[in-house]
């Protein structure tokens, strides 16, 4: 039985790395039939595969199209498993990250990659989408008690919306409660320092490491 469990979990992890949606869905159905705990299947199988894909991305064997298709395989499995997740049992509360693309910008590929990898890293993501006003980031972070606010932009003209988020947090007296991280094409560590953000990362796998460091999980 345990070797059967291992075979399925390993197969699920591989299916994500191999970008194979059909196998991901098939093995997820098998896992359900075998009565394996759905959350464990997601974390030790599918998300494990996504973390391996993230490592391949970091070592420049995988690039963005590959990561996105890996994430499709992950989602194909999660779709099957979702109805079987047992909610009782007091699963540990996940650290929340509010993420979005700053107002004025509609480019969200980078944001989506960060979302995929940070989620696979065990965080709960609240995705505000693209073209998001500064107020919305702050209000959501407060309402959801999110530890991290992740801001993305690809456009030089919209990056100035980022300091506004930091200022709003200060105005509302909650600057210390929410870490602010920034990323996107035109940005740099120098920009992050200048606007008083807590960190910058230049790609999605670094964003995951940054989030872990900031919340003390590194």
């Amino acid at each position: 039985m345990s070797s059967e469990r291992e075979r399925i979990l390993r197969g699920l992890s591989d299916s994500v790395v191999d970008m194979d949606e059909d196998t991901a869905a098939e093995l997820s159905n098998e896992a359900v039939a075998q009565g394996i705990d759905a959350l464990e299947v997601i974390d030790e199988g599918l998300a494990d595969g996504m973390r391996r894909a993230g490592d391949l991305f970091e070592s420049e064997e995988y690039f963005i199209p590959e990561l996105l298709v890996c994430s499709d395989a992950l989602n194909a499995g999660v779709e099957v498993l979702k109805p079987h997740i047992k909610v009782e049992g007091g699963a540990e509360k996940k650290t929340k990250v509010v993420i979005g693309v700053i107002e004025g910008d509609t480019h969200d590929i980078g944001k989506n990659l960060v979302k995929i990898l940070v989620e696979a890293g065990g965080f709960e993501i609240i995705d505000l989408g693209r073209d998001v006003p500064a107020e919305k980031f702050v209000d959501t972070a407060i309402a959801e008690q999110a530890d991290v606010i992740a801001l993305s932009t690809l456009m030089t003209t919209t990056m100035l919306g980022m300091p506004k988020v930091v200022e709003l947090l200060k105005e509302k007296g909650v600057r210390e409660k929410h870490k602010v991280i920034v990323g996107g094409g035109p940005l740099s560590q120098a920009f992050s320092d200048k606007i008083g953000a807590d960190g910058y990362s230049k790609n999605a796998s670094e964003a995951l490491k940054l989030v872990k460091t900031l919340v003390g999980r590194a």
Partner: peptide
């Protein structure tokens, strides 16, 4: 759609 576009390059 840019996400789909990048996936389609592979899929």
């Amino acid at each position: 759609d840019p996400m789909r576009f990048l996936k389609d390059l592979r899929k």
